[in-house]
Amino acid sequence: MIDLQALTQAVGDLDENTILTMINDFIETNPSGEDAQKVVFACQQGMAIVGELFEKNEYYVGDLIFAGELLSKTIDLLKPVLSSVATQKFGSIVIGTVEGDLHDIGKNIFGSMAEAAGFDVYDLGIDVSPSAFVEKVKEVKPQIVGMSGVLTLAIDSMKNTVNALNEAGLRESVKIIIGGNPVNEDACKQIGADAFTTNAAEGLKTCQGWVK
């Protein structure tokens, strides 16, 4: 049986070779879906270590990106085994880079971390119009909307998106978090978001607090 603690540690260390060897060996044993879920959980705990090291300034954004890549590789390997069991989800988030902005690195980091933490993540991509956010919120009824942007113009687009959600009568049904270089407390108030962050790990904690 796979050593789950060692796997958690390898994910925390971002030790790609060890992780892939362990996962491939595990899959060769023809595991059950339940066992595969335990492996996913061990990886999620490893991601929590990554988040802690990030907060302690031992890891930086580049490490988070690499962690996201490792995790999606791992989940892809496990998918055939996992398909037999229903996975437990903690909540759902609609995310996107707001209208006029094409920067998606921060959004992608947040998205992969939220997915790793067990959220259903609906990623609308970049340059997302307010109406596209509204349509998606109507469709999937998420608990949370995450808006991302790097340019200063993103502040205005975020405000327009919140206004559009208001007009569609959806604002009260979701929590809204904004992320990216230009956001701060003043901008958050002006936009009418519930929280802001420039740090994906911290933003994820905020979201986890909302769905508890």
């Binding site: 209208e99 902005d101 094409l102 920067h103 998606d104 690195i105 340059d127 119009s129 340019l151």
Partner: peptide, 13 residues
Amino acid sequence: IVMSSSGFMQHPD
């Protein structure tokens, strides 16, 4: 280097 819907030239990844 491409133009976004708002007309700003930007550098995607």
